[in-house]
Write a protein that binds this DNA or RNA. Structure first.
Lengths: 230, 230
DNA sequence: CGAACAAGGATTGTGCACAATCTACAAAAC
DNA sequence: GTTTTGTAGATTGTGCACAATCCTTGTTCG
């Protein structure tokens, strides 16, 4: 047994490494724009660069990592435009999915959502906002899972993941949480099997969420300056 | 210069190889379920297995290829359930996107769509149904591009690609084409800037398209038998 | 003093060899 | 005759070494 063996053993799979990095990004432990050096990750997890490279490629396809040729991989940094598009897509997918979920939800599903909210509150009380954002996203994915549409669920998962990055970048500090209340109301509508109300609530929830973001064009100026020269 | 040099030179990039395989799948030259051996592909394109492997991983994330651990990669074979889900997702995304496209379309965009339809007809007259299906899908992606929503465009592209596989598997031979007419009507609505009509037309077009598929549960029986033992 | 240029270091890209695993076929035991 | 087991072949998984590319820094020239 080595003394300070770096995370050895069973985590040597591509999916395992990708999941660990993904969790770190979604928990806001890795900020957008952070450089992800292959050698560094390889030594951290005690594996070769091949696995790390495959994991990074996997995350790139999920939109969580951006790779530049011969430059390496970085934690994705969604632009203002991308942020708008993500919420546009969510507005198209999630309300109708919430409706389906309400019409199909079984008691065990409702219990699962309640547990989700509970964990969310716990993380919030502990001051771990990063994890709270992650769990808040998982809540939306759970609704898609109840709707029993795995294809749409995958899309929503991707959108939620990018939303996490967007929140990390463009969140206004004022008015701490417009969310926990909305999630409660959604669970109530789903528990009552009220599809129409669930759809409405999800629509307004997404509008609220978006209104908590600062999507003005100000930080685009230095970016275009740099890109204009290249 | 070697005599039978297999496709040498500039196609040695991951994206290049992935694009070639993708095109072959979308053109219905590679049937669903076909084994994609790494060595074989490597020798065909005259490159190492590393590139091939990365390309296959890329296609796996796009849903065009399914990989089994220690078994290799196969052209994806969507189940009946997946087929239903794909059209469910398309019904959520495409009508509203067509509406946006109609409201934003410029004359050059309309010309592009006309050219698309022309190519589609040419492939159909040449008897190349595989290419016709591919171009028919590209038409839907072009509409998403006009709507200027790259995130939604990516999702629709993925859905179109899987639809191509679904058509290859579950297409009813009777009533050859319910499509070319619908595409014409859509372009007219977009050219007139009539968003509401474009949305309606897209919705009914998707319903028609789905009705041309045989999505009964018959071939699921032998599958469950196998899965019941594992 | 500023800018262009060149050398050095670091990081990624790719091919290759070996290890791990699976499939198929054949032989032996029940 | 059926089932099990063992061996051979093929295919995928992973680490490693070298090549290609890029960034940084120090130097020199205008």
């Amino acid at each position: 047994m080595s003394v300070t063996a770096p995370e050895r053993a069973h985590s040597a799979t591509i999916e395992g490494v990708a999941a660990k990095i993904e969790l770190a990004i979604l928990d806001h432990r890795l900020a957008p724009g952070t450089k992800l050096t292959e050698d560094e990750l390889a030594s951290i997890y005690g594996i070769g660069r091949t696995i790390v490279r495959a994991a990074l490629q996997s995350l790139t396809h999920k939109g969580l990592v951006e790779t530049q040729r011969n430059r390496g991989a970085f934690v994705a940094k969604p632009s203002i435009r991308e942020a708008r598009e993500v919420f546009e897509a969510r507005a198209l997918l999630e309300p109708r999915t919430a409706q389906s979920a309400a019409e199909r939800a079984r008691p065990s599903d409702v219990r699962l959502l309640h547990r989700h909210i509970k964990q969310e509150h716990a993380a919030l009380d502990a001051g771990n906002t990063g994890r709270a954002v992650y769990l808040s996203g998982e809540f939306h994915v759970a609704i898609a899972r109840i709707a029993d549409q795995t294809t749409i669920e995958h899309f929503i998962y991707q959108l939620i993941a990018r939303s996490s990055l967007i929140i990390a970048l463009y969140w206004r500090r004022r008015d701490a949480l417009c969310e926990s209340h909305a999630h409660h109301a959604l669970v109530d509508a789903i528990a009552n099997g009220d599809g129409a109300r669930a759809e409405e609530l999800m629509t307004s929830h997404l509008v609220d969420l978006r209104s908590c973001l600062d999507l003005s064009d100000s930080p685009a100026a230095p970016k275009t300056l740099r890109e204009a020269l290249a």
